[in-house]
Design a protein around this nucleic acid. Sequence first.
DNA 1: AGGAGTTTGTGAACGGAAGAACAAAACGAG
DNA 2: CTCGTTTTGTTCTTCCGTTCACAAACTCCT
Lengths: 215, 215
Amino acid sequence: MARLPIYLRALTVLVERGIGTCSSEDLATATGVNSAKLRKDLSYLGSYGTRGVGYDVDYLRYQIAREIGVTQDWPVVIVGIGNLGNALANYSGFRSRGFRVVALLDAAPERHDEAVAGLEVRPFDDLEEIVAAESVSIGVIATPAVAAQDVADRMVAAGVTSILNFAPTVLSVPEGVDVRKVDLSIELQILAYHEQRKAAPDADLGHATDQEVIA
Amino acid sequence: MARLPIYLRALTVLVERGIGTCSSEDLATATGVNSAKLRKDLSYLGSYGTRGVGYDVDYLRYQIAREIGVTQDWPVVIVGIGNLGNALANYSGFRSRGFRVVALLDAAPERHDEAVAGLEVRPFDDLEEIVAAESVSIGVIATPAVAAQDVADRMVAAGVTSILNFAPTVLSVPEGVDVRKVDLSIELQILAYHEQRKAAPDADLGHATDQEVIA
DNA sequence: AGGAGTTTGTGAACGGAAGAACAAAACGAG
DNA sequence: CTCGTTTTGTTCTTCCGTTCACAAACTCCT
């Protein structure tokens, strides 16, 4: 389930506040979901609550972390150290949430040997060697769109089976490889869409006239 | 619909290639969706295709752009010019897809007057003035998690009605304000979840034993 | 010990999205 | 002009996720 990481984060906050127990209602309001949905999500993992009491925060947090698979660290490579790649390399949230950036790769020679976030930027051709040496199964693509498919192909060939893609392209990968896409423009466009609807509730009138022009 | 921007991008590629007409099947494979679903999405906008022929690429592209609301530019403010804010400010994709970054704000005085992507970083307290002057309705939050809710409150009070939030927090906003969240760690955790399932198909055995420990 | 008050876990109803399938419409060939 | 081919627009069915509602279970107070 895609909501497990959200619960995990909320539980971590509760742990830091020293709260030992919480009800499904508490967690639901903290994460912005329906409490029945939350209970059903959790019950899918097993029966970790106590009726009349709630959930043990620490224990539930560990169970969710184990279910997601972030009880141990996952090695990650980042390809494309431009503005975005730089930001990702410096993002401390990865480290604290079960991921370890083991290498930064870039095709441009002028970036090589530069130090970013305490790591040296290495040639893209080192990909296969690094993936094999560190048993990397997760790759992050932060290159321009034109390079993304090539990078993905090389990653898959090297043994990467999960890809987080920031390039604005649809990647095609073989069966068994997972791809998740983060597209900043698309997020803004979705907001613009709703924004437009707020501004002009009856904006549909434009359609008919435009249709007539064509017809 | 959240898929409209994807279609828009694919159509832009087709325009650049000089392709004048395409079928729903073409667009579907290019965007990775089912062709029936695509046709249903498009028919929701109006009847813009020709049976036996397909869709006029240029015309359809314009119609989708108009539906999304990106035929004219939307002014956007970015708050929090750290690593990520920097990358966002420099991202050229916003400009070419209907968005114009009008201001960069940061609470830290040592960042003020610094030039980022051709814009001066200004104090966060200038928010209200800028939002009013430029009629900004979309704000981007790239601050640390602890500051995000305060920034959101100020944005909403100033008149912003759509927020793109990169901080790993659940924002609470009044009715009528849209929030979209981009959380990098969550994306990686979802990949890790699937990755774990690939590695150990019967990892569920662990549950029962752990339950016994508690019980 | 028993009853009142909570809270979980889940069965059942609901809604909406996704895919299959087909009729209507346009084009081109003969 | 008619027939066959292509492709859209739409209907119908299926399925999945969400929500409601309630019984089971646990705690606390008397």
